[in-house]
């Protein structure tokens, strides 16, 4: 009986995390479109509900009632699995995100490796969808995105090593607590910039949205998808973007910590700070979508392998030697 109780308590905790994440994904889509419209001097979605807030819900409703079309020549099992994989991977990563010192679903030793592993698995949803569609444009989109995501993962990995050198632990709560005096965005500012750009590429956001470049590939890997399956790709994509923003704010912007430990700031509860930081990074994502033109494919590869990777490797050496010389290495 006691085990059953623990089981239900865990289910309750998981739902308590996942439902707000899903709702905020819907809101974030609205925010993205509003920011985009604001930059281009349009109005954006403003009809459904106050300020158009329910636009995403209306869209979701539309997708649910649409027919799911499965192409006759596709590999049906993998075709159906692909959006499920994307969505699941985007959601399971939230298990390790610490919202405060106590509010975390799974406080595991290797939290940052788990996040990295899950985000590196995200490429499978796209490859599976592109291949199983058995048509030209989705396949080209999938091949592009596989190469792109694998390349930018390498530089994200090296950037994480930079942060880990300063922390001395793979636990996400330890990473946040190590920034109590100084957020890592200040000493590691170049790494923060590179992380931000790599996160754009990793989540296939403009200016790196080559897998779904509509001018060349129709809609890339999602071309053959319709109805609810398309909506799942879409939700997974935005959940991934939020996750990358959360990762950025935990690694560089001090996670749930308040900027200064003074009266009006330290009464605000910790999760609010994390949410505000995620929102800040997301608005940057949305602004960049509106103002930067799409990269060409060879430029993207050149940026990843020839500029970001060497630069972040040099920065690892620099950080390590700095910490060694001034005897600041953690664990000593």
């Amino acid at each position: 009986m006691a085990e059953l109780f623990i089981f239900f308590e865990q289910i309750y905790r998981i739902l308590f995390l996942l439902i707000p994440v899903l709702v905020s994904v819907a809101m974030i889509v609205w925010l993205d479109r509003r920011v985009w419209a604001f930059v281009q001097k349009r109005r954006g979605p403003n009809v459904v509900g106050p300020f158009g807030l329910f636009q995403t819900l209306a869209d979701a409703l539309k997708y649910i009632f649409k027919e799911i079309i499965i192409p006759a020549s596709s590999n049906k099992v993998i075709f159906i699995l692909a959006p499920i994989v994307t969505m699941t991977l985007a959601l399971i990563a939230w298990a390790v995100i610490p919202f405060s010192e106590t509010f975390v679903l799974a406080d595991i030793n290797v939290g940052i490796l788990y996040l990295f592993a899950v985000s590196s698995l995200g490429v499978y949803g796209i490859i599976m969808g592109g291949w199983a569609s058995n048509s030209k444009y989705p396949f080209l989109g999938a091949i592009r995105s596989a190469a792109q995501m694998v390349s930018y993962e390498v530089s994200i990995g090296v950037i994480i090593i930079n942060v880990l050198l300063c922390v001395g632990s793979l636990n996400l709560s330890d990473i946040v607590l190590a920034q109590k005096d100084l957020w890592f965005v200040i000493p590691l500012f170049p790494m923060f910039i590179i992380f931000f750009i790599s996160a754009l590429a990793e989540t296939n956001r403009p200016p790196f949205d080559l897998p779904e470049a509509e001018a060349e590939l129709v809609a890339g890997y999602q071309t053959e998808y319709s109805g609810m399956m398309y909506a799942m790709f879409w939700l997974g994509e935005y959940a991934n973007i939020l996750l990358m923003c959360a990762m950025g704010s935990i690694l560089f912007l001090g996670g749930w910590l308040s900027p200064i430990d003074l009266f009006p700031f330290n009464v605000i509860p910790a999760p609010i700070w994390l949410i505000l930081k995620i929102l800040f990074l997301f608005i940057l994502f949305a602004l960049i979508k509106a103002i930067v033109p799409r990269y060409r494919y060879d430029q993207l590869m050149k940026l990843g392998w020839k500029i970001f990777l060497p630069f972040s490797l040099i920065y690892v050496v620099l950080t390590a030697s700095f910490l060694m010389y001034f005897d600041l290495l953690p664990g000593n």
């Binding site: 030793n109 490796l113 990295f116 592993a117 490429v123 694998v150 993962e153």
Partner: peptide, 17 residues
């Protein structure tokens, strides 16, 4: 747990791709 995660990152995330 470290080996498990590295297995995921290296083999599933890179080699199998």
């Amino acid at each position: 747990e470290f080996l498990g995660m590295i297995m995921l990152i290296v083999y599933v995330g890179a080699v199998a791709v």
